[in-house]
Design a protein around this nucleic acid. Structure first.
Length: 262
DNA sequence: CATAATGTTTAAGA
DNA sequence: GTCTTAAACATTAT
């Protein structure tokens, strides 16, 4: 699930543990947690997280003057701040226990994400080549970066080194709303359409954030609530098409989203 | 049982 | 250097 709106929900969850003393850290699966349990305890025990930052699909929890925890969620991830009496979720991979006996559970079913540490969040972001967050990017930068590319629009939107936060599902939604075919090459998209995509990127994420990333609560006319095999376009009621773009399953409406001619 | 699934990285070829 | 495709990672759900 984790794309920008889901990670934004995790950010809010992490905010709850801010300023509470860290008592200990338990690593459940060393393949998911790249830093050792010892190392984590050495760096964070006795401290507290004073800043939580989301950048695209990444989350950074920073302790007072020192190290930060990096959370990346992969395809299946979750973050929950639970009370002492609440039972541990099934796929908790790492657990931060606080003085108030609450725990922050980093959950991952498929373990495609990871937890690690960094002393320098800005440097980490540079190393990972993480672009500006989709909600932070200004219009001019967006337009000029699209103009500098020639690949399919969906591929560009989901490239985290170009814009960060957009994943497979939300790129489908943004392009569906903008009525642009996901396979359209960026060098064939007019500036007017680029502006429309920019506006919808904000609109869609703003709406999804208001609904706390609950896809079923998105307004009528959205693609994501019906993004399933055999369903129809909420607009024209025609059948949705499914295809693969950069190896990712893509849903679109062949009649509402203009087909690029080959 | 085979297949696909929200993400990223890496390799290889055009 | 740019772009595309495929495969790999680990595990669950259908």
């Amino acid at each position: 699930m984790p794309e920008l709106p889901e990670v934004e929900v995790y950010r809010k969850e992490a905010e709850k543990c801010k300023n509470s003393g860290i008592e200990s850290i338990i690593v459940k699966d060393v393949r998911f947690v790249k830093s050792s349990e010892n190392e984590l305890n050495k760096n964070f025990k006795g401290k507290h997280f004073e800043q939580v930052l989301r950048r695209g699909k990444y989350l950074f929890l920073s302790a007072e003057k020192g190290a930060s925890v990096v959370l990346h969620f992969g395809m299946t991830g979750d973050l929950r701040y639970l009370k002492e009496n609440e039972k541990e979720p099934k796929y908790t991979q790492c657990r931060f226990i606080f003085k108030n006996k609450h725990s922050l559970h980093v959950i991952s079913k498929r373990k495609l994400g990871y937890i690690e540490m960094t002393d320098d969040v800005e440097g980490y972001i540079r190393e990972k080549d993480l672009a500006t967050d989709a909600l932070e990017m200004n219009r001019n930068d967006f337009i000029s970066v699209l103009k500098s590319k020639k690949s399919m629009i969906k591929t560009v939107l989901t490239d985290q080194s170009i814009i960060s936060g957009i994943g497979n599902e939300y790129s489908d939604e943004i392009l569906y709303q903008a009525k642009v075919h996901p396979r359209e090459r960026t060098d064939r998209i007019s500036e007017k359409e680029m502006n429309k995509i920019y506006d919808l990127m904000h609109e869609v994420f703003k709406t999804a954030n208001e609904k706390n990333a609950d896809v079923s609560k998105l307004p009528d006319g959205y693609l994501l609530p019906v993004r399933k095999k055999g369903n129809n376009c909420p607009g024209c009621r025609g059948k949705l098409e499914i295809t693969k773009i950069s190896g990712r399953t893509t849903y679109y409406c062949p009649s509402c989203q203009k087909t690029p001619d080959k």
